[in-house]
């Protein structure tokens, strides 16, 4: 909008998850969103078959963060040929946990009156960043020191917004909170925290180079295997 006002967590555009060729005429596109403290799978179903579709249901395989449908799939049936419908499926994180490769992989099964269809999607980790992820300053400093240097991972983010305020506002809308901000030798340093739905805290330092669109993200976490995916979430939210 250009107004600098940021509303809500970043939502990626929908992409096709199940092609009609593989779904016997059922095409599903979707994305993930976090709204009002809850996670959703936003889906678009299209019937590209010559027959009516009905009796839809959805199931997830076990996954790294216990994501599971929080309600049955509500599709107004029957779905006539060439008809489309939008559905927002609320999710919770109390399902069975199994570490996936990659960590953010989700295996989905959708059934209708024709067959059962399987597909895999990867979700951006920021849909799991909770609203109370701002760490107290004293706790931040203690935790930062407590996490060993070997657990720190560094990444370059290109195409950052030009001002620290814009960066901070954009990230906060996706539940990445600025705990402190310092300027040293012209470089803006943002100290940030976030918390995942499973209680894992991530501490971050975002260093912005004056006059450069690139910034350096340093992440400290007791579960360093998540760092790569946190970086991807930062990139997605900032771009």
């Amino acid at each position: 909008s250009g107004t600098g006002i940021v509303t809500g967590s970043y939502v990626a555009p929908k992409t096709v998850w199940l092609h009609a060729m593989k779904g016997k005429g059922l095409e599903i596109s979707g994305t993930f969103a976090r709204r009002s403290g809850a996670t959703f799978m936003d889906l678009h179903f299209t019937n590209r078959a010559l027959q009516v579709m009905s009796d839809f249901a959805i199931q997830f395989n076990r996954n790294s963060f216990g994501l599971a449908p929080a309600a049955p799939l509500q599709i107004p049936t029957p779905l006539a040929p060439n008809q489309s419908t939008e559905v927002s499926l609320p999710l919770n994180t109390i399902g069975s946990v199994m570490k996936m490769e990659p960590l953010n992989n989700l295996q989905v099964a959708v059934k209708n009156n024709i067959d059962v269809f399987y597909f895999s999607v990867v979700y951006p980790l920021h849909i799991l960043f909770v609203e109370d992820g701002k760490m107290e300053r004293q706790m931040f400093l203690a935790t930062w020191k407590d996490i060993p240097n070997e657990n720190e991972a560094q990444f370059q983010i290109r195409d950052c917004p030009p001002s620290a305020d814009a960066v901070s506002n954009k990230l906060q809308a996706s539940n990445i909170f600025t705990v402190a901000r310092r300027t040293v030798e012209g470089q803006d340093m943002l100290y940030q925290s976030l918390k995942l739905t499973n209680g894992i805290w991530v501490l971050a330092e975002l260093r912005m180079q004056p006059g450069s669109p690139s910034c350096t993200l340093s992440l400290r976490c007791r579960a360093p295997e998540v760092s790569q995916f946190i970086f991807q979430a930062y990139e997605m939210v900032l771009k």
């Binding site: 300053r137 004293q138 400093l141 930062w144 310092r182 340093m189 100290y191 340093s218």
Partner: peptide, 20 residues
């Protein structure tokens, strides 16, 4: 304003990271 020493601690952290 209550000086809890945390402002200074963050400044030291930022400086140590810039000039290790």
């Amino acid at each position: 304003e209550l000086d809890d020493g945390l402002d200074e601690a963050f400044s030291r952290l930022a400086e140590s990271r810039t000039n290790p």
